[in-house]
Design a protein around this nucleic acid. Structure first.
Lengths: 146, 146
DNA sequence: AGAATTCTTATAAATTTATGTTGAAAAATA
DNA sequence: TATTTTTCAACATAAATTTATAAGAATTCT
């Protein structure tokens, strides 16, 4: 299957959770809470949030009362940035992103196909913001206030 | 990374090779030849061709003088069929194809996103045939006759 | 019978997915 | 400022899956 890894899926859900809290009150939130809400192992979330921190999409606040918080407004964070941080370049095959990966590019017929398909995804994720995701969530669960 | 597995990539190249030979003379071709041409381990190709056979996209002929041959004309084989055989449903996440996979679908904001993105890919692969791939290959390598 | 080829099964290496344990840093509080 | 609590950070490990190779059996052609 052409598959988004759990890192990409869980990480995106993590960012949506952070965005929902960011929106309603600008406080940091602890991973434990997201772990409970989203039913994802906190140990795994801890691993997943590292690349998001490195990419400066989230900030961590240590110590009592600490937690994590978005580094920017959700409307200013593209889904593509999130996936880039979590999974590296958002392309279906290595060779689309790294020309040196395979020396058959010049002959390979499938290269063009994977490249086009990757572009479709890239454009879609480029034009989807974290804010869009929050709005979808709000629409699906009108009653829930976080 | 949102990644096509090697099964999907190698299998597609395998199908293109079969299509090129099918086009020029309707003989079966042995995996060893494709293995040499495409530089993919023959043992691995043997595993990869099994689902293609099960999906009735290729036919096998056993024994000396045997080999593999496309079951239909390349213009009548969609890339989506190939990927479906090799990787299962062509969707980014399980839940898009199997509603029972996760019970958070009703609340999950990311579900809609992965579903839309999967549709983009699905439509693209649905409208690309093996013949299209052969023509791309011909254009890239005008001199090569197989 | 012998050669060529697919088919089957086993297994090993690499990567992804996930959990457990311990330690370090920061903030709150007394 | 010392203590305690909360939380992030780092490291180790285990399970599952993907990727790949090996060896030999079964089948068919000549």
């Amino acid at each position: 299957m052409i598959r988004l890894s759990t890192k990409g899926r869980y990480g995106t859900r993590l960012m949506v959770s952070l965005a929902q809290h960011y929106h309603n009150r600008r406080e940091s939130i602890i991973l434990k809470k997201i772990s409970d809400e989203e039913e994802i192992s906190i140990r795994y979330l801890e691993q997943i949030i590292i690349p998001l921190k490195i990419a400066r999409l989230v900030k961590s606040i240590r110590g009592a009362g600490g937690g994590y918080i978005l580094a920017r407004d959700p409307s200013n964070i593209k889904l593509r940035e999130i996936l880039l941080a979590l999974e590296g370049a958002c392309c279906l095959v290595e060779c689309v992103d790294d020309e040196d990966y395979c020396d058959r590019i010049k002959e390979c017929a499938t290269y063009e196909i994977w490249k086009n398909a990757s572009s479709l995804l890239k454009d879609y994720f480029e034009n989807t913001t974290l804010q869009d995701l929050v709005e979808i969530a709000d629409k699906k669960n009108p009653s829930v206030r976080k």
